[in-house]
Write a protein that binds this DNA or RNA. Structure first.
Lengths: 139, 139
DNA sequence: ATTCGGATTAGACAAAGTCAAAATTATAAA
DNA sequence: TTTATAATTTTGACTTTGTCTAATCCGAAT
């Protein structure tokens, strides 16, 4: 993710760059993901994409999000017991998660250090490290 | 959680200590949680509790687990997109999570340091910090 | 035009969890 | 002991999120 303006063409480029065939639906879904700075659930993406005209079905949205995750275009966030969030910011960073409102806020990775983690179980490789600071309003 | 043998009586004590009325069902559910060193899902607890005789309904298991979490008797782990795990170890520690098998392994907190986290958003308090190292076998 | 494979779709389905109302159990008071 | 009251549990319907299958559609290349 970066701060450029995203157009259908720029999203198509991004898809090609990852070896993804840039179909109409995938472009619309990519656009919805990257235009929205926030962390969206599959349902929100489905609603966004079909807000003007109906562009993609539920199955396609789910399939496409899974494809994007596999190809490293978006990051899956598992913080809410009910639904998965998709983060279009794939650079290393962490999150505050408000357990009451469900709101997610980025924590930039700069300056955050984690050390003392034990070595991985033999034969395994790291998929990623999630640091989630669960917060709530109040005293 | 500790390494003592857990009996119905010791679980009842633990419940009283947290201000929870120790009913038959709650004791059975507590026993299932604390006898099993592993990280169990609600469904697994339901099955465990009713393995011999039918002891508690689905609703009661869900209600009771929620109650236990509120009272700090168990910790909720949100790492799997499908289900919540309940960890009877409430001391500070982190987890390896095998994204393929779903297996969870404890990482003792001793020696693990996290620093450089920004201050919390104003007015908020920490509920806890989850560090999840996602791993897979391979390649 | 025809074929072939990839992509999309509808709609049925599954799993996890919630909820409201009724039934049960325990507690305490009369 | 009866009665009243509160707490707990249960049933079963329901919601939400996500998956699956089979049919269809689309697009590129014969």
């Amino acid at each position: 993710m970066d701060l450029r303006i995203h157009t259908r063409e720029s999203v198509a480029q991004m898809l090609r760059g990852r070896g993804i065939n840039p179909t109409h639906q995938r472009i619309e879904i990519g656009l919805a993901l990257f235009e929205n700075p926030r962390h969206s659930s599959a349902d929100e993406i489905l609603a966004l994409v079909n807000a003007r005209h109906t562009e993609a079905s539920k199955a396609t949205v789910y399939n496409t999000l899974k494809l994007f995750v596999e190809k490293g275009m978006v990051r899956e966030l598992i913080v809410d017991p009910n639904k998965v969030f998709y983060d279009s910011n794939t650079s290393v960073h962490h999150h505050f998660y408000d357990v009451i409102t469900g709101e997610l806020t980025d924590i930039p990775a700069e300056g955050v250090h984690i050390d003392g983690l034990p070595s991985l179980p033999p034969g395994s490789i790291t998929e990623g490290i999630d640091v989630i600071v669960r917060i709530r309003q109040g005293h």
